[in-house]
Amino acid sequence: MAGHGAAADDKKPPRDAHPLLRADWHWGRLEGALNLIAAVSIFAIMVLGVLQIASRVGSAGARELWPEFPPIAIHGYIDWIEFVAVLYALLGIAYCQRLGGHIRMEIVLASIRGRARWLLELLGIALALAITLLLVHATFENFLRAWINGDSSMDIRLPQWPSKLVVPVALAVLAVRLALQLWGYARLVLWPTALPMAVPLVVTADEAARQEIAETEMRERRG
């Protein structure tokens, strides 16, 4: 069971590199940008939360001194957080997939090597691509209903279609990523000893543990 992995290479491939390698890199840039937006949304939630407490405690304190001081609260705070939530909940999904970051059980996989292993990986990606495409369709319809019939949040009635549209967009980006990985594993099934391209490095449970440690050590050194 591991939520870790690694991308094969993060350096920009030269113009004459394998097309898969170049596609992987370019799509990875887009995924990185989306994950950055997700990161910014998390930062925004932190700032909003601190402001919410500050305004509440601050105005309560002010009322102790001057009873006429009006209580302040961010209008529609919950609605705004929920409006932003879709960004951190979904936008980075393809980025995480590129790094092999979604959880899976690796007991069986870890005990298999060579072509059989690549076949199993290929099957896993094919199923993932199938469900992702189904959900791109289904979540786009979910957006369309909000767009055509209307939908809004409970308290301050923010329109819901923009955040509902983020879901199929994020899943479509994931679908492309899965297609690239499908290509990557198909190559390996055909030529099991070829250099892996556009697939997460093979990571077993203890390799994942080692990676967790490497990350920690890096931070410790900096810290």
């Binding site: 809004s152 009635r157 329109p159 819901q160």
Partner: peptide, 19 residues
Amino acid sequence: LSRGALEMTMICSSYHPDK
């Protein structure tokens, strides 16, 4: 409900005013 997965449902209109 709208796509027929359910035959009936309860809703509260205030949960999604603009629907």
